[in-house]
Design a protein around this nucleic acid. Sequence first.
DNA 1: TAAAAAGCTATTCAGATGAATAGTAGTGTG
DNA 2: CACACTACTATTCATCTGAATAGCTTTTTA
Lengths: 210, 210
Amino acid sequence: MKALTTRQREVLDFISGALDTRNQSPSLREIAAHFGFRGMKAAADHVTALKRKGALCGTDRQARSLKPSDSLASLRRRLVHVPLFGSISAGFAEERRQEAEGCVSVDVESTGIRPTARTFALRVRGDSMIGRHIVEGDVVILEHGMTPRPGQVVAALIDNENTLKTYSIHRGKPVLKAENPRYPDLIPADELVIQGVMIALIRKTPEGRV
Amino acid sequence: MKALTTRQREVLDFISGALDTRNQSPSLREIAAHFGFRGMKAAADHVTALKRKGALCGTDRQARSLKPSDSLASLRRRLVHVPLFGSISAGFAEERRQEAEGCVSVDVESTGIRPTARTFALRVRGDSMIGRHIVEGDVVILEHGMTPRPGQVVAALIDNENTLKTYSIHRGKPVLKAENPRYPDLIPADELVIQGVMIALIRKTPEGRV
DNA sequence: TAAAAAGCTATTCAGATGAATAGTAGTGTG
DNA sequence: CACACTACTATTCATCTGAATAGCTTTTTA
């Protein structure tokens, strides 16, 4: 990519910014207005220059189709937006989105996070999974309706509360195991509702947290 | 939000899909073309109905401004796209984006992930930070140029390789501590290049991983 | 069963938009 | 110096686009 001039950089930043905040490309006239151009040819010229230098791409003659051909953007994978719950009380309701307390966005990778409607996230409470290096405050992403395999971490509804356990087989029977010696082990799995199987984890270190 | 008909759901899905894949709202004519409508009023009617039912929003008379007012979307926070490295060899180059092996996207939360240009991600190798529950394969998100505080996890360049350590103060001097008894401790921090301070962590459980 | 809503065809219109033409001033560069 | 490039003003044009009007059939609801 050829070097950009200061002005071209400014125009590119404005377009990227609009795309980030409004999720929509500005029109040539909006670019002109933002920079105080009296005509819009100036904006058009900058866009042409940016396209020529490979910094910008867009469909010809199509409104608001500009987007930076930024290498970071091209590396960007398809995103999944997953509803985040503090806890899930009942079974899977239709309108579970309503109860979500937030939203976690992860990019899909080969690892297997598929953008299913049954994917959700849960905030971890307690330290029952410390043996699997899952600590309080972590956000786990789970897939509902997946059949767990032994060794996988699952979220189960125990006493009307979500708990993370390791799914395993003991004496030929499926059981749920806590990964902390202080917690009771081996709960028969078939009597419980398994909410989901863990497919990913996100930990955010708050500013003051140590 | 009122219930949608099957057809309205289809139209909404098409718009969301276009937004996800092309990052751009379709025009009414594109919607019509996709569903094989002979006129474009049909598409306009569906859009009007979806807006009325609160499923869709957009600026009046503005091209390609449709976007689902989906509750999941409204919960969605501003995203940061962070370049992911396998390792960082030298100091911070300008064109570090070029070397990035991927891209991690996280949504900004109050925790402090600010969309700085100095934010980057690193894939964890080895188990030197097992004591902090950071395991092999995890992706840590770091901020370059931040002054670390004791107890925070930092990435340092040791022997031309990135290593995660805990930053702490020993006898009044800053030192780097490995969180695994099998690794050497207490490396004087001021002789090293600190690449960044950890602000978040992402763990993805591959399909077969246990 | 009657009314309302959904789901379309066909056409028209104003305004938004990208692109083009013509021209000016300044800045480098070989 | 001539030439290319940047960075604009000013204006015009074809097309894209959203919105509107008139009408039609089918499905849903009261």
